[in-house]
Amino acid sequence: MSRRTALSPSLALLPFLVYLTIFLLVPTVTVVVGAFQEDGSFSTANIEALFSEAALRTLWNSVVLSATTAVIGAVLGALLAYLVVTAPPTSLLRRVVVSVSGVLAQFGGVTLAFAFIAMLGFSGVVTELLRSAVGVDIFGSGWLFGLPGLILVYTYFQIPLMVIVFLPALEGLRPQWREAAVNLGATTWQYWTRVAVPLLRPAFLGASLLLFANAFAAYATAAALVSQGNPIVPLLIRAALTSEVLLGRQNLAFALAFQMIVVVAVVMTAYALLVRRTSRWLR
C-alpha cells in the first residue's frame, strides 16, 4: 500500500517524460553517437574533420560573429536598459521599450534578413537614397551578405535580448545601496566603481554569455541572408545536411552539431552559475 502511494503519483509524469525522451533526448543522443560513428561503426574521423582547416576557419568565424554581437549587444543593451530604468516605472517609454524588446528579441529569421535587405540591399531603400542623394554606394561589394552583414543584423535582436535579460538586474539595484554609499561619504563616481559596477558585473557577464550562445546557435537569419558559401557553423551544418558528402565525411553534420552542443552547453553552464550568484545578491 505504501509502495503504491509512493509510486503512483510519479507515474502521471510518464507521458511527459516519454514524449521528451522521443523528441528531445533521442535526437540529442543520436547526434552525440553519430558524431563518433562512420558507416555504422565507431570512428573519430568526423571529430577529426572538425579540426580541418576549413572547419576551424568556420568555427573561428562563428566565434567572432557571436563574440562581436554579444559584446555590442551587451554594451548597447545595458545602456538602453539603464535609460529605461531611470525613467519612472509607469512611464510610456518604459512600457514601450519593454514590450518592443520582447517582440524584437524573438524577431530573428527570414523576416529580419529581409528587413535589412529591403534597407541595405542592392536596391534597398537606404542604399538608393544615398546613391541618389550623396552618390555613395554603401552596398559596395555585397558586405551585407557576408560576416559584416551578419554582425549588423544579429545586433538587431541581440540588443533587445540584452534589455530583457539585464533589466531585472538593474531593477534589483536597491536605492538604499546608493543612499548608504552616499551617506558613508562616496561620490557618484565612487558609488559606480565600488558598488554598482561590481554588483552588476556577474549579471552583465552572464547576459553576455547568453547573447553569445544565442548568436552561435542562430540559423534562420544567416540562412536567409547568406546563400553563397558557408562562413559560419550553422551554415556548414546546412551544407552537411543537404549535400551528402562534405569535407569527405558523411556524418559530418553530427560532428558539427555535437560541436555546437558542447560550445552552447559550456557557455550556458557558465551563464547559469553567474545568474545564481547575482540572484543571491539582487533579490
Binding site: 538604499q176 548608504a180 554609499a181 552616499v182 551617506n183 561619504g185 558598488v195 554588483l199 533579490r283
Partner: peptide
C-alpha cells in the same frame, strides 16, 4: 556624502 552622518536603513542596505 560630506555630511558626516551615519545612517541605518530599514533593511537590505548592506552591499551584497
Amino acid at each position: 556624502n560630506k555630511r558626516d552622518m551615519g545612517m541605518v536603513f530599514q533593511a537590505y542596505s548592506l552591499f551584497p
